[in-house]
Structure formats: structure tokens, C-alpha cells
């Protein structure tokens, strides 16, 4: 049994006086114990909504969630708000995109770390403070004792994200979800945070869902990668399979649009045509068809199904055949 099994997860936003909007459309994937799984796709494809659905953090009103999210065999979607509150921070941890806005500006770092220990571990404040200092040390924050009394505005961006990682991992959750954890940071800091995450999940055996719009981020980190487009998974493969031979034209496009160290000098980056707003609903044809270089007549009429192909899952009528130029 996988640690987390997401099956046919669908999230529909239904606001009064507006047409229902399907943000996540039948997404399935699994995360094994200790595994790192990537969710990759352009902004707006439903990555954050998927993670919030798993955490039980979607707004209570105006949203319909269906499908199944099983964690260690237990169905999370039907658990009571109270049960989910007990799980969050204890079984499931989450790190968000913008470390500055994700920290409470008027509460000290120490309290923001200890509150999760007090809540789930029943520790006293003083015991929790000792543990918090160790945690900050573990995530590479120098002089942790002094940092406990400081406030978020006194820390650098990278330090803030480290503190948030410490909070999310404080109770040793089995699963950590990181939603674009490096997007708001400088490039050099990005690399440090990624290295830290990869070291922490290795040391603690925590499973990780790594969410990003940047395939470069998952390159060194993930065992398996799911590529999302307009709320659906369009390709899933082991990391090296995917990077060596992307089959979906969208994945291929994403890969060609990131800088590669091993690319021949002078080769130009090729951005994907169009924008994600060109979506046509998945109900008629392939949503990527309007932007797809490999588009066939069939793609406009028949919605492709997810099929096993070449040791991976693929949703495409006319996948890319050739190898990526090495």
C-alpha cells in the first residue's frame, strides 16, 4: 500500500452567479513511503489546488471535491474537519511559496515553531523551545537560540524558508508537501533550499510532494514526475525517463524551454507557443491541442485517455518520437 494514494481527484469551484470552474480534473497519483514525487506544470494548472485538497485546506464553501485521497489507507476526503486538524502538522506538513507572507509578522519565530510542538506533542513551552532550537539548527539556521526570539522581518528570505521547513517537519510528518518552495527566492538561495530539502527527506525518510512550474527544480530531487496540464496529468514517468525522452509534446516543450548545462553552445531556448488561457475544456479533444506542435485532426475531437506506453503513463494521440537532442 502506498503512503498516499490520490485517485480521480476532482475540484470544482462553484461561485454564485458564475459558471462552475474545474481546477483539478480527475488527477491520480501515488506517493510511496519515503519517495519524492514531482507535480509540474505551468501556473494555473491546478498544482496548489491539488495540494490544498490533500491537506483539507480548501475553502469550505463554493468548492466541490470528489474522488479519493487515501493516506495510510484512511480516506482523507471524508474525515471530519477535526480529524484533519489533528493530522495537519502531525502526519502532513506543508511549505508554501512566499516565506515572508507565510510567517506571522507579529509573532516570534520561536513561538511559531513551538506552537506546533505544543499542539501535537503536548510539550510544555520550555521543552518545546529546546526542541525548536535543535530544529532550527537542523535546517541550517546559525545561532538558533537567538533566532527564536527574533521576528520574521529580522530574517533573510532563505532563513525564513528554512524556519518554515523546520515548522513543517517539527512533528516528523510522514508526508511533506512543498508548493513552489523556492520560487520567491534568489537563484543561489534556491539551490541551497533544494539541497536542504533533499537532505532532510533522505535523513528523516519523509515522503515529499514537490510542486513546481520549473522542471529544473525537480531534476535533482524527484523519483517520479507528474506533468499537469489544465487540471489533468498528461505524462508520468520516472525522473530519468522523463528527462531523457519526454514523450508528451507539452513535457517536451517544458524541457526545451529551460536552460540546460549540457546543451550545445548557442542553442536557443524554445518557449511553448501560446498561453495556458488557450485551454479548451477537456470534454472536447485535448486541452493542449491549440498550442501543440504535433496536433492532429483527431486531437480536436477526441479527448486522449491516460495510457501505459513505453514504461510510463501518457495522455496523447501523437507523442514525440525522437530523442531530445543531447
Amino acid at each position: 500500500m502506498a503512503l498516499l494514494e490520490v485517485t480521480d481527484l476532482t475540484v470544482v469551484f462553484q461561485r454564485r452567479g458564475e459558471a462552475p470552474f474545474t481546477a483539478v480534473d480527475g488527477v491520480s497519483f501515488a506517493v510511496e513511503e519515503g519517495q519524492t514525487v514531482g507535480l509540474v506544470g505551468e501556473s494555473g494548472c491546478g498544482k496548489s489546488v491539488t495540494s490544498l485538497a490533500i491537506m483539507g485546506l480548501l475553502p469550505r464553501r463554493g468548492v466541490r471535491v470528489s474522488g479519493s485521497v487515501r493516506f495510510e489507507g484512511a480516506e482523507l476526503l471524508t474525515e471530519s474537519p477535526r480529524q484533519m486538524r489533528d493530522r495537519r502538522g502531525r502526519d502532513l506538513g506543508m511549505v508554501f511559496q512566499d516565506p515572508l507572507s507565510s510567517l506571522n509578522p507579529v509573532v516570534s519565530i520561536g513561538i511559531q515553531v513551538t506552537e506546533v510542538l505544543e499542539r501535537h506533542r503536548g510539550m510544555s513551552r520550555s521543552k518545546a523551545m529546546r526542541v525548536a532550537a535543535e530544529l532550527l539548527d537542523q535546517v541550517g539556521i546559525p545561532d538558533p537560540r537567538r533566532r527564536l526570539d527574533e521576528y520574521p522581518h529580522q530574517l533573510s528570505g532563505g532563513m525564513r524558508q528554512r524556519a518554515l521547513i523546520a515548522m513543517a517537519l517539527a512533528c516528523q510528518p510522514r508526508l511533506l508537501i512543498a508548493d513552489e518552495p523556492t520560487t520567491a527566492l534568489d537563484v543561489t538561495i534556491q539551490a541551497q533550499i533544494l539541497a536542504l530539502l533533499s537532505q532532510l527527506v533522505r535523513d528523516t525518510g519523509t515522503a515529499l510532494i514537490m510542486i513546481t512550474h520549473d522542471l529544473g527544480v525537480v531534476a535533482g530531487l524527484c523519483d517520479e514526475v507528474n506533468v499537469l496540464y489544465a487540471g489533468r496529468v498528461v505524462e508520468r514517468a520516472a525522473r530519468h525517463e522523463l528527462f531523457a525522452r519526454p514523450r508528451h509534446p507539452y513535457t517536451h516543450g517544458l524541457l526545451s524551454s529551460i536552460p540546460r548545462l549540457d546543451a550545445p553552445r548557442g542553442e536557443r531556448l524554445v518557449p511553448i507557443r501560446g498561453a495556458v488561457t488557450d485551454n479548451i475544456p477537456w470534454t472536447q479533444g485535448c486541452a493542449f491541442a491549440p498550442r501543440c506542435p504535433n496536433v492532429l485532426e483527431k486531437c480536436l475531437d477526441v479527448t486522449p485517455e491516460m495510457e501505459e506506453d513505453d514504461g510510463r503513463l501518457l495522455r496523447c494521440h501523437n507523442p514525440v518520437r525522437q530523442e531530445v537532442p543531447a
Binding site: 502531525r90 506571522n104 515548522m167
Partner: peptide, 26 residues
Amino acid sequence: DEDYVRTAESKGLTTPVIRRRHVLRN
């Protein structure tokens, strides 16, 4: 609507703690 309230929720904190420390204080 602030991100830090969502962070507090993601830590599974109880409603009274979220209300007092994270919402009302700000």
C-alpha cells in the same frame, strides 16, 4: 486572506490559537 493564516491552518493549530495569535493579533 493572509498566507500566514493558511500556514497556521497547515500546522493543525486549534481554532482558539489561530483566532487569538494569528488573526486577532494582526
